[in-house]
Amino acid sequence: MRSGLVRFLALWKKEWIQIWRDPASIAIGVVLPAVLLLIYGYGISLDSLRLPIGVVVENPNPLTASFVAGLERSRYFSPEPYGAIGGAEEAMRDGKVEAILWLWSDFTRRGLREGNAPLSLIVNGVDANTARLLEGYFQGVWSQWLQWEANTSGQPLLLPVEVESRIWFNPALESRHYLAPGVIVINMTLVGALLTALVIAREWERGTMEALLSTPVSMAEILWSKTGPYFVLGMGGMAVCVVMAVALFGAPLLGSVWVLSLASALFLLSSLGMGLLISSALRSTFLASMVAIVATFLPAFILSGFIFDIASMPEPIRLFTYLFAARYFVTLLQTIFLAGNVWSVILPNLVALFLMAAFFLGNAWRISRRSLE
């Protein structure tokens, strides 16, 4: 028992020395997550702000000026005036504006009549997501302007339905609060799988695995000694990402830090196990790194719900997403950050991560034979 512990600690020390002598490992484990979070946090946004919109007014008057001023006050639009519809259409073909607002000549006469003033909104539909956002933003500005004009003139606003909306979990509608947890998942996937995908293969390429196998150490001791340091390194990178998400991007952390730590540990173990499995099976650092990126990073980006809504995917693809640990971790982080400790969501996803971690670590140990074959 004592000799086994001594061997394990010696292997643990050896791995830390190897990490310390290889600055790339520290850079990938700690520096890279921080850099990626900065790039994604500041560079990616699902909010469309200051959208250029061409405005054509056939009969300028105080009412049309009031409506255009409402567009200018909105943070979503940047109105550009055009004298005729032909010039605005040419500007949209050239990509100078994303939409055209065309206020017809009888806009003033029908302005507050049940909110159906004659106008046209022509939207560039090349980017379908931006087009939908622009249309929704315009409906909001239009409703607010109608209500403001009705209050100013003392006339009742005759609308068939008045909608009172409430937004849960992200009331500010800041996409960064939604994206920051997803970026953390991408970082942890890349760090966990890529680092350990190299460790066993590197030992085989350098010829040091034969030296290890000639000693009394077991394959389990080798695997755990290589997993432990990278687990500590990955959890350190996770802590850096969480602090940055809260301090720099204002992401609310409504759930328990302990639940967040447990979820992160289970996900990191599953990523490390997958990296060990790839490394043990291929024994080539080049092949292992390529397979790790394709098998972990790309699915975590595309199939985890980080960017693309899983519910809108075809049924076969939705079922396929259950094979990737990132799917469960994205759900966990978004729930813990934005909603708090919702146990009906947290517990099933924690169990899924535990099973995946056991599967990958168990299979990595199974195929790692203590032989040179």
Rank of each mutant, 00 (worst) to 15 (best):
P156H: 10
F324G: 00
P79A: 06
Q334C: 04
A326K: 00
R93E: 11
L36V: 10
L223P: 04
L266W: 04
L353Q: 13
A27L: 15
I39P: 01
I44K: 10
M209R: 10
V243A: 15
S165Y: 07
V257T: 12
W12H: 13
L36G: 13
R109N: 14
W365F: 08
L101P: 06
M356H: 01
E98P: 04
G192L: 01
G43M: 13
P156Y: 08
A295G: 04
L287I: 13
A117V: 00
S25G: 09
L159W: 00
R366S: 11
E58L: 03
L63A: 15
R369W: 07
R206E: 06
V183L: 12
V183Q: 14
S312K: 14
E114W: 01
P316F: 12
S284T: 07
R327C: 01
T285Q: 12
L262R: 04
A193I: 03
F249Q: 01
L49I: 15
G275F: 02
R93D: 05
V242A: 10
D22V: 01
S66E: 11
L323M: 07
F324C: 06
A326T: 05
L63D: 06
V257S: 13
S218R: 05
S256R: 09
G207P: 10
V6H: 10
P60K: 08
Q144T: 05
F169C: 08
P171G: 10
V55W: 02
G4Q: 08
A326H: 05
A201M: 05
F337T: 02
R202A: 09
A265Y: 03
G95N: 04
R73D: 14
F107Y: 07
A357Y: 01
V161W: 09
N59Y: 14
V126Y: 14
G136Q: 03
F267Q: 01
E221N: 12
F249R: 01
G237C: 11
W20G: 14
I39C: 14
L103E: 02
A352K: 06
T208R: 10
L266Q: 01
L159Y: 04
E58G: 00
R75K: 07
F267E: 02
P33F: 05
R7I: 10
T130K: 15
A84I: 09
V97T: 04
N124Y: 03
W16K: 07
P316T: 12
I367E: 07
V123N: 02
S261H: 07
F231M: 15
M274R: 02
I310P: 07
S344I: 10
N124G: 07
V123K: 02
V141T: 01
L361H: 05
S304Y: 00
A358K: 07
A339Y: 08
E315I: 14
W224V: 08
G115I: 00
E221D: 11
V342G: 08
D47Q: 15
A300M: 06
W145L: 02
S270Y: 03
A247N: 11
L223W: 11
Y137T: 03
R75S: 15
D94L: 13
C241S: 07
Q334M: 03
L119W: 08
S284W: 07
R366Y: 09
